[in-house]
Design a protein around this nucleic acid. Sequence first.
DNA 1: GAGCTGGAAGCAGGA
DNA 2: TTTCCTGCTTCCAGC
Length: 814
Amino acid sequence: MTGLEDQEFDFDFLFEFNQGDEGAAAAAQEHYSYAPTSIGSALPLPTAHPSLPAPCHDLQTATAGLSAMPAASHSAGYGAAMDSASAGYFLSAGSIRPDGAPALESPRIEITSYLGLHHNSSQFFHDVEVEDVIPGAKRSPSTATLSLPGLEAYRDPACLSPASSLSSRSCNSEASSYESNYSYPYTSPQTSPWQSPCVSPKTTDPEEGFPRGLGACTLLGSPRHSPSTSPRASVTEESWLGTRTSRPASPCNKRKYSLNGRQAPYSPHHSPTPSPHGSPRVSVTDDTWLGSTTQYTSSAIVAAINALTTDSSLDLGDGVPVKARKTGLEHSPSVALKVEPAGEDLGTTPPASDFPPEDFSTFQHIRKGAFCDQYLSVPQHPYQWAKPKSLTPTSYMSPSLPALDWQLPSHSGPYELRIEVQPKSHHRAHYETEGSRGAVKASAGGHPVVQLHGYLENEPLTLQLFIGTADDRLLRPHAFYQVHRITGKTVSTTSHEAVLCSTKVLEIPLLPENNMRATIDCAGILKLRNSDIELRKGETDIGRKNTRVRLVFRVHIPQPSGRTLSLQVASNPIECSQRSAQELPLVEKQSADSYPVVGGKKMVLSGHNFLQDSKVIFVEKAPDGHHVWEMEAKTDRDLCKPNSLVVEIPPFRNQRITSPVQVSFYVCNGKRKRSQHQHFTYLPANVPVIKTEPSDDYEPASACGPASQGLSPVPRPYYSQQLAAPPDPGSCLVAGFPLCPQRSTVMPTPRSASPKLHDLSAAAYTKGIASPAHCHLGLAQPAGEVAAVQDVPRPVAVHPGSPEQPPPATLQPQ
DNA sequence: GAGCTGGAAGCAGGA
DNA sequence: TTTCCTGCTTCCAGC
């Protein structure tokens, strides 16, 4: 992976969610005009060529805008086209639909207007009402459970990006906030209720009915239902895909049992597998792209129309192929979540059938109509899991928690969420067709351990765990891996499975009696078939060789003010592929991360799969991704061990640098057997060396373990994105963060802004907050709190998964 | 017998 | 165009 241009940021920000203190009018205004702003903010597009590395949010932005881009716009190249075309995607100010939603002028706009259609006044006021009825700080845990047959099959039309295959670098992960809108309340003690049914394809646990049954997967081709219920169930998509390419993208149909045993084609025109037409990972050349742009565009339009139709009518069947709908119904009796026995006595989530039709309909409204309106308070008593509650609309509460692809600090003020024991660097994930491969283990045996420090209250909290990415982009939920709940006699930790924004989240109690410490022995990793995920609308990542993940832990700490402080910490990368784990070199730790340009110092790398023939290549890249300098470092073959490698830092090409220069290096075992890039910084020759970790004292055996989390001097791999806490938690507290940042356009992104950083100027942020585009009811940002955000030095906002509207986060480039 | 684990077969795409 | 390599997915067998 490219690396130099991908800056590793140490940015901190804190979320505080002011729940329920919003005026209805302000919220309504925000809601109402959300869509247009969202669009606008999504428009700033990268100018770099897509083939060149670029900051992730830029790519995301590009992705968002690619969906229905006119063919002509692409001719000039990906990034350029986006820029040039962006103007066309803004809503016309004067175009208003009869229902008040802005009219649309382009497929792109049409898609986004979906929001407007459903952020209509009725829905809006309903939500406001909820907010008013239940003050956020006093809300009890929301325990809404919902069955949404067929409906979940729909995927965010805004993500309908046929160009998704163009790049594997997009941050538009399936679980990004883009899709936060497709979620519903769920029974959870403390966390967000965003549930998207489109999670893993087929649970290995038969009793786990929720995702399997969720119709979302029927349309989306979610792996859980795929391939029979792949997006291609849609005639629209069929026609679209059918003209794209004849290249098969998935080996899924290579097994007879796949055709006959598990899935039956629901259409004579359909391959039983989801990917007879070419996977998004197909390398799309300019020719193929241009040649199919028209089809993309038109299909995007049709898809968007389908979505709109389905949405506006709330008829689950509209726009959903009959077969898909049927499948969804068959499979989704409920979104009831599987609960550990310990929690089951507390009640189970009622199936959808328990809802009166009107309530069900209301929930459909909530989930689909109000993209970002799924509100859930932060429960004060997390362990009333699955406690049945009346699911009337008024009892539906807002989560107001940060989306899973938001970057959060690991510590703030007295609190620190820390991984005490890191997981092993290798854990072979299991496919749905396989049995579980057990829980993730720690390097030295046992299991990972996570602890929340500084929490002195007696109230238990919920630790959330999901599978995040481990690439050099910002952390976000991994599209191709999901956490898998492990149960059994060997599992001592109670857990609870939920789905947030298409991402499975394991919820684990953090109990004061356990010193807020949890042993993660209940979390396995499920691999989703690449072909299934890549075919999802809006999915731009590719699964191939995208096999590194991290365990991401989150905790939401209620504050006396009624707000919630969210912390997050990610584990070291875990290689999940069998083959990669066996062959690819993996650098877990390096004994130095900087040295003067003269080089010559021995650096010890620890990791896996090092060979005597392993080479260590130092690379400097230009911002455009070109290699400016590349040099092979000398390795000491005598000292080479499978898990450690001694390398001599090569002298930098320029001995006269006046400021540190960041380069990267990787270990190469062969042609395509390279490790991830690791950061290394060359210092000016006259800069005194800060001794970090003497190589003499270095013990490779210590490479694995808690120290590698970020506590040791140089544990951080290139792609690590551990966040540091702000100096003062109060300095960047942000109340009223949008639940679905991608939709909420906290601040309009200047189209001329740097592709890497979005300026969070006072004006911009204030405007964003006050903007009616804010999609979250009751989450308007008081001016004072906005100012607090601005108090953070050099504040810039960034949102990895949401190019449309970076969250009010502070970002401090490393 | 179920679950976990390691190994490998078979296929498809890419080099 | 062909061949080989690589990666993905599934299956099998042992514990």
